[in-house]
Amino acid sequence: MKKKFLIALTLAFVLVFSLGVITTTANYFNGGGTKISNVVDALTSAQNKTVQTKLKRWGYYTGAVDGIYGPKTKQAVINFQRKNGLVADGIVGKKTAAALGMSLGTTTTTSSTQSSSDLALLARCVHAEARGEPYTGQVAVAAVILNRVKSSSFPNTISGVIYQPYAFTAVNDGQINLSPNETAYKAAQDALNGWDPTYGCLYYYNPKTATSSWIWSRQTVLTIGNHSFCL
């Protein structure tokens, strides 16, 4: 009896293990080992406050207006969604925001899409490439991207430059799809407003990790944080 039990156990193990192998391989082939989601962006604290204020005014929410999206706020959102015939998932997306009569910023206004999408893409690239760098180092990375847009040796749009094959390692490995933080946005904004601490540089590299021999031949203009910027 013991033996049978043992065999069964081994089999169960083999089965579970092989299923595991199947799913991981499938996952691997279905889009790489690192899957990064940027589907739902959390609301900012100010936006949460707006949600709370509105829900409180209409009697869905009784807690404090503190900008924190806690369980009470979530329940209030769910109740609001049920009453208004929306999907009751507790997430303030486009439709719920519209029902609340608030704007989620970049995604819902039509007049600003053109420039805001550039800003968002630039911020994402800055975040992916330079999130550990000092603020000026982040502005500098954004400035290099914009200098490339102006340069004759590179594509002529922000998206063209960022998605040019092999141009940025963080685009190649998918880190570009991480949600950028506030600092990356500010740095991108400053660069779009014309700030360029590199005075026209087109390249940068980390001297500690760079393997390209070609990049070392460029004229270095300055170093900020871990990055050397060059022409």
Partner: peptide, 23 residues
């Protein structure tokens, strides 16, 4: 016991094969 083992092993092999094939 053995036949169960064979069946399960066989099934899981087929499963693995299909999975890999799909992937």
């Amino acid at each position: 016991g053995l036949s169960i083992a064979t069946a399960v092993l066989g099934l899981s092999t087929i499963g693995l094969g299909i999975g890999l094939g799909v992937a």
